[in-house]
Design a binder for these strands. Structure first.
Lengths: 168, 168
DNA sequence: AAAAACTTTCAGAATATTTTGAAAATTCAA
DNA sequence: TTGAATTTTCAAAATATTCTGAAAGTTTTT
């Protein structure tokens, strides 16, 4: 079956790419599976579909909720918990970008601030060191602000498309 | 010694953060060491400084050169190869962003194109699938273009700072 | 051409991350 | 309550990644 094949390829590809960008394979595969599923799924269905253990499913569903990529759905008359993915890909991308900003840029800014505080620029050597720390600090604050701007409102999509066009 | 301590903390922190964003610890530590070093260093010096093997040093120096973060320097009268880091942090950030765009977004765009080609929208199910693939395609092309715009010229730094200010 | 100085490679070892699955905890219906 | 259904936890096992170090490869000097 052609569609089934394409869906499997999608799930597999999503999982492989995810490892490239620091997200674990199974989490990405569960996400892909839910993205493609028109109805919400429970843990047993996901286990059967991806052939993975209950513990693994549970843990990664939790992480996906932390990332804001899936939602828990309680179906009336059902004991089991069901999960459904955010289908608006623009929202998905925003969530991922937001989370990565938090994880990747935040700690960097903090670490540089800590280093700045510990050192006084009383020798040339120390000044040199502080120059680098300060530069990294500036660039990471800039990156953080840029991300925030891009994410703050969907209007920025438009603004940036303009910038893109003007730079062509 | 206070500065030595701060430098060690910098190297250690850089290494830890790097794992968070998909780069290996040793590569980041070598990069940090070279960033802080006013003169270029050879493999033996790096081995001694970070207490790691020759093979490890060699491999990661190679990767750092691939990333465009360090340069090889041949000193007159010296047999050994010396390495020096790019000190302009804005350039460093651009290089990292460029490389990550290439590694993270490129393959995603390709994968979605492949999936699109394999499926005809002749059933509702297939249309639904193609909708998702197309949306991901669009968002990733957008992300790619945005990155490219940001990197293309340093003027974009200014433009984005304006955007940032206007959004405050 | 041989030897010395240095760099690269890569199989196996060490380390780190992910996964399993069964036990413990929780929730809910009766 | 009790107990069946379901979810969560976590130590041990499986897997994946990184690192080592010695052997092989290169380049330069003599």
């Amino acid at each position: 079956m052609e569609l089934k094949e394409a869906k499997d390829k999608f799930i597999h590809t999503w999982g492989t790419l995810a490892t490239q960008w620091g997200i674990n394979r199974t989490m990405a595969q569960i996400h892909a599976l839910l993205l493609l599923s028109s109805k919400s799924m429970n843990a047993d269905e996901i286990m059967a579909d991806l052939q993975i253990s209950r513990g693994n499913v549970n843990m990664n569903l939790r992480d996906l909720m932390d990332w804001g990529l899936i939602y828990k759905q309680l179906l009336p008359g059902e004991r089991k918990e069901y999960f459904i993915a955010e289908k608006d890909i623009w929202k998905v991308a925003k969530q991922i970008a937001k989370e990565r900003r938090r994880r990747e840029i935040g700690p960097l800014i903090e670490a540089m601030e800590d280093l700045k505080e510990g050192i006084q620029p009383d020798t040339a050597e120390k000044e040199e060191f502080l120059k680098i720390v300060n530069d990294i600090s500036k660039v990471s604050v800039f990156a953080d602000n840029t991300m925030t701007s891009l994410l703050k409102s969907d209007e920025n999509w438009l603004i940036n498309n303009f910038i893109k066009i003007f730079n062509k």
